[in-house]
Design a protein around this nucleic acid. Structure first.
Length: 463
RNA sequence: GGCGCGAUAGCAAAGCGGUUAUGCCGCGGAUUGCAAAUCCGUUGUAGGCCGGUUCGACUCCGGCUCGCGCCUCCA
């Protein structure tokens, strides 16, 4: 197996080889849990879940960590307004996040460290940075001194002069140099805080990730992922912290940096600050989670993807076609199935997660299934189930898929009522009373129920 | 101001220096009591614009136009 991954550090595809051939370590930046996540937040989760599945197929052990940021100024303010602890406040959204991501068929990560459970590791790392001459204390803050890191800027490809020239940041008076960033900041009595060598305070934004990586995954990890917007400053600063806190020798802090492109709305980035976002939670009221997942996989992960109702409708139609070929096929994935199309699918995924082509393979298999009969058909259906599993798709029963209806929709016909009308219609058909049969078809159609007659009986689906 | 990305048919979205991406939508045929699904065929002059390299470019190179992103919380 040769796996190619695009590395943001080198801006090109590289052959992936883990530092330890028996174990891959991967860290992906998780959510700051102060509200429901939007569909743009779901893109990296789906992308790296797909990578996680791929890695698991080819390496004996994969440790995938995704953090939960449960302390930050937005959380602090919201928890205070609610008169509850940041932990209680944050945990509600952390649970919602896990539910939402689960509904998109994302596997749980191996580890989900919480920032507030790892304050000690952050303090340790900050102390190491001070000891190594990369950080300094000033007015209760601890700051990383960027000029002490000759490698600074290597991920985001920018140099200090450019940054200072274009800086729109106010420079705090206690900074030695404008680009220095906060590792630790003091907390007033009404803010969450932890005791530290620099007084009661709380961590800066970037330190949690590098500290938790060091603590849970080690000095060097194989893959670190996240959205493009994290390249600067978040990941650049993580590199500075994670590299300067200890002797690294030849090995980097992170060996492969991967970043997904944005989800756009009308060509503009979806973001919380622009307010042009849709929450995953809302979308799940209208669409199956699998449709959302499929939609996110239709574009290559590094490309922008314009999000729209049409995108989801197209994804739904495509999945309808695939599920139609899986009627009566068992759900369990048969690990022993072999088929050239599976090799083709693997080849595409191994080429920096070429999911659009991987989806094309699913459709090629569907075409074969539609033409096949008997055992050959069953074998191909098993193949398609397995192919779908590689992408986190096609893991449900076809009948359930076609009978699905939006959670937000109420008052429609129940399954039993529909079945009763179908019985009545079939009786009418037997009696050659096609007028009544068509009337029932029409009546159901008006309710969004489509009937399909076949020699094996009548099936129905919700539109 | 600095740095970077993109432009493909009705819609979405890929690979590839010459041979069908794929899905949805459209059209014709088969099948069907009707319908759907499926199969066969097929169209919509596809590759932002202008040059260059080449026997040949959507695919490589240069310029232009337009759009977008990061430099500030952000996936």
């Amino acid at each position: 197996m040769t796996l190619y991954l695009h590395n943001t550090l080198t801006q090109q595809k590289e052959i992936f080889t883990p530092l330890n051939p028996n174990q891959v370590t991967m860290y992906v930046c998780g959510p700051t849990v102060y509200n429901f996540v939007h569909i743009g937040n779901a893109r990296p989760v789906v992308v790296f879940d797909t990578l996680f599945r791929l890695l698991q197929r080819h390496f004996p052990k994969v440790i995938y960590a995704r953090n939960v940021t449960d302390v930050d100024d937005k959380i602090n303010a919201a928890a205070k307004a609610n008169n509850e602890s940041i932990r209680d406040f944050a945990e509600r959204y952390a649970i919602a996040y896990r539910e939402d991501m689960g509904n998109l068929n994302n596997l749980p990560p191996t580890l989900e460290p919480y920032a507030t459970d790892n304050i000690d590791a952050m303090i340790d790392q900050i102390q190491a940075l001070i000891k190594n001459g990369h950080a300094y204390e000033a007015e209760g803050h601890v700051l990383f001194q960027v000029s002490t890191d000759s490698q600074y800027g290597k991920l985001s490809k920018r140099n200090m002069d450019d940054m200072i020239a274009g800086a729109r940041v106010e420079v705090a008076p206690y900074k030695k140099e404008p680009a220095d960033f906060v590792l630790w900041k003091p907390s007033s009595d009404d803010l969450p805080g932890w005791d530290s060598p620099w007084g009661r305070g709380r961590p800066g934004w970037h330190i949690e990730c590098s500290a938790m990586i060091s603590k849970h995954l080690g000095k060097t990890i194989d893959i670190h992922g996240g959205g493009m917007d994290l390249i600067f400053p978040h990941h650049e600063n993580e590199i500075a912290q994670g590299t300067c806190c200890h002797e690294h020798g030849q090995e980097a802090f992170v060996r492969y940096w991967m970043h997904n492109g944005y989800l756009n709305i009308d060509g503009e980035k979806m973001s919380k600050s622009l307010g042009n976002f849709r929450t995953v939670r809302d979308l799940l009221q209208e669409w199956p989670g699998e449709v959302i997942r499929y939609a996110l996989l239709t574009a290559h992960y590094r490309k922008p993807l314009d999000f729209s109702g049409d995108l989801l409708a197209n994804a739904k139609s495509s999945l309808d076609r695939l599920y139609n070929t899986l009627r009566e096929s068992p759900l369990a994935v048969d690990g022993n199935v072999r088929h050239p199309q599976l090799d083709e699918l693997e080849k595409h995924l191994q080429d920096d997660l070429a999911t659009p082509q991987a989806l094309a393979v699913l459709h090629a298999l569907a075409g074969e299934i539609n033409k096949a009969q008997g055992d050959e058909k069953i074998r191909l259906q098993k193949t398609l189930r397995k192919a779908g599993d590689c992408l986190g798709l096609l893991n449900q029963d076809s009948e359930a898929w076609f009978k699905w209806q939006p959670a937000g929709k109420t008052g429609g016909l129940s399954d039993a009522e529909i079945d009763a009308l179908i019985v009545e219609r079939n009786d009418a058909k037997k009696a050659k009373n096609f007028g009544r049969a068509d009337e029932i078809r029409k009546q159901l159609k008006e309710q969004g129920i489509v009937l399909e007659d076949s020699k094996d009986g009548t099936r129905w689906t919700r539109e």
